[in-house]
Amino acid sequence: MEEVLKFLKDNPTYYLATMDGSQPRVRPFGTIALFEGRLYFQTGHVKNVYEQLIANPQIEICASSHQGGWLRITATAVRDDRREARAAVLADYPSLQDMYAPDDGNCEVFYLKDATAVFSSFTAEPRTITF
């Protein structure tokens, strides 16, 4: 899991896919944090992505590196409503602290459960990690 975290931190914009009914929705994300042995991301309660995650927590993340490789993660996004989890994720992203606070009623965090991460490139066989 640390290799997945490092890849996402080294390539800070990834794309998160959710389902909006029968329509896939993909958007750029940038938060990823390790808390209590799990990978977390953050969003706002008022955003459509939050409603999509609640309705169908099955997600996919895709990120690419400047070196030519890419990472795809399939997982279940699990909402964590604890203040400690929200504070831990925001602590990794000071730039978000002007928009979000752990107790603002808008900050939401999710962790990845039953995740399968596949590292791929044009020059090597895919490599899979589960966590």
Rank of each mutant, 00 (worst) to 15 (best):
F7A: 03
I73V: 13
N106I: 07
I59V: 15
W70M: 02
A101P: 00
K113W: 07
K113E: 15
T128Q: 10
G30L: 08
E51L: 10
V89Y: 07
V89W: 06
K113L: 09
E2K: 13
L5P: 02
A88M: 07
P28F: 12
M1T: 06
V118Q: 11
L112S: 01
L71E: 06
K47Q: 11
I73H: 07
R79T: 02
G30P: 01
K47A: 12
A117K: 04
D103G: 04
V78Q: 12
G69S: 15
N56Y: 08
L8N: 00
D98G: 07
G105C: 09
M19T: 07
A101T: 07
T76P: 00
L39H: 03
D81V: 04
A91F: 08
R86M: 14
L112N: 03
R72A: 05
T76S: 13
L96Y: 14
L96G: 00
P94S: 09
K113S: 15
V49E: 15
C107T: 13
L112P: 02
S120T: 05
I54L: 13
R72D: 06
P24H: 09
L34A: 14
F131T: 11
A88L: 10
A17G: 05
G68A: 05
R83G: 00
A77T: 03
Y100Q: 01
S120L: 10
P12V: 11
G69I: 00
L53V: 05
Y15W: 12
E60W: 08
K6D: 11
R82H: 14
A55E: 14
Q67N: 07
Y111K: 05
A115K: 01
V46C: 03
F41Y: 12
T116S: 12
V78W: 07
M19S: 09
M1W: 05
I54N: 00
L5I: 13
V26Q: 14
E60T: 02
V4W: 03
A115L: 07
A124I: 00
Q97I: 12
G21T: 11
L34Q: 11
G30A: 12
